[in-house]
Simulated scan of single mutants.
Amino acid sequence: MFSTYIEVALLCHPVLAFLTVQNPKMHIKHSNLQYFIFSFLSLLVLRYACSAYVFPSEISIALCATNDQPNPIAHIYPGNATGTLNGTIAVIPISLELARQMIPPQYGILEHAYRALLPSFPKGMYPAVVQALHDHEVQAFGYKIDDFSRTGIEFPFVDMLNDNQTSFKWAPSMLMTAGHDIALNGAMDYGTNTFPATFDPGCDAYRAVPNSKKPGTTYFSARSSEAGAASLTTVFSSAEEEVFPLEFFKNFTNQPTFADGKTCDNMIRLYNTSVTTAPNQIQSVKGTVRANLFPFPGEKEWKNVYGLRLDTAFIENNYLPCENFRGYAGHE
């Protein structure tokens, strides 16, 4: 806008000088003529300076900063893919009958495995899990990729090998940061239904909800770039009660993960590093999850969902034969 004003002044300046010289009542002195020439040259210099400088009002700058803690284990495992996962993980109780309808029929459900960890879990129910996460400082061999966000609803305690023993986690769908080709392609290579998406917040695992009546309320949202294809939103507040023990979360977050069953992802979540222990801490939360995501038919909403808000370091081993995990009981 300012540069436009200067251009108008430059156009009008010679006209004003010409009219001044031509008007017999306005004959100018030599010093005044020098003034016109000097002022014209000054405006010309200012005009070219404006073309090199973009004023703040004329540009939109997308600032993106994260509150995530640095990767504390990259130097310990330089040859492995490591990073941190900050966000919220929570349990969505659904009927065992519905879980059986959605999980591929060739795979069993290890009900005895999750009941060993959750003896009081309601009869006829199954613990689906939602993870809303921000991957930070993911790197290997000194190469670091950009941060990205992801979320989805997963199905743990799946008997993929039909050995009635080894628990796997089926992750059929995922929303991931649009434009992050490395992350998107990595998920698609597992056969995951992957939806490029926009996230709110864009560079963090969640954001505070101002003026909320409930303490520690945070918000997270993901919407697919393709309108209406997929979405997931969470609102969680601090909770005093611990409905599900930490050992349960450690168990299912460390189960080998698969989608189409051709290969498995070995994500080892560590709960004893500096990003998880004091002064950082694990927080119990309670809230609402709303999702439009395969394999659930249509949009669903779950209230009074309990979980944890936390940051963990991880080591990841990709595209491994699922058979390698027969008898695997997790890293921790």
Rank of each mutant, 00 (worst) to 15 (best):
297 P>E: 08
286 K>F: 04
31 S>D: 10
239 A>I: 03
245 P>H: 12
268 I>M: 13
50 C>F: 13
166 T>H: 04
261 G>E: 08
202 G>C: 13
202 G>H: 05
245 P>S: 12
305 V>D: 06
331 H>D: 11
197 A>H: 07
185 N>H: 03
157 F>N: 05
245 P>M: 14
140 A>Y: 11
32 N>M: 13
226 E>S: 11
155 F>Y: 13
16 L>D: 06
179 G>P: 02
304 N>R: 00
256 P>V: 03
23 N>M: 05
126 Y>T: 00
267 M>Q: 07
299 E>S: 10
161 L>V: 11
14 P>K: 07
293 L>F: 05
2 F>Q: 12
202 G>P: 01
278 A>C: 03
115 R>W: 06
130 V>W: 01
140 A>H: 10
149 S>E: 04
100 R>W: 03
104 P>D: 05
247 E>W: 09
52 A>P: 00
130 V>R: 06
34 Q>P: 00
231 S>K: 15
253 T>G: 02
174 M>P: 00
122 P>L: 06
85 L>R: 04
287 G>Q: 02
187 A>E: 15
15 V>A: 09
193 N>I: 11
171 A>L: 13
252 F>A: 08
84 T>F: 02
49 A>F: 15
89 I>L: 12
104 P>C: 10
21 V>L: 15
255 Q>G: 04
309 R>H: 11
45 V>Q: 13
49 A>S: 12
289 V>T: 02
153 I>Y: 11
2 F>Y: 10
72 P>A: 04
146 D>R: 01
77 Y>T: 00
275 V>A: 12
1 M>F: 11
298 G>K: 05
191 G>M: 06
23 N>Y: 01
215 P>A: 14
271 Y>P: 07
39 S>V: 05
299 E>Q: 13
95 S>E: 14
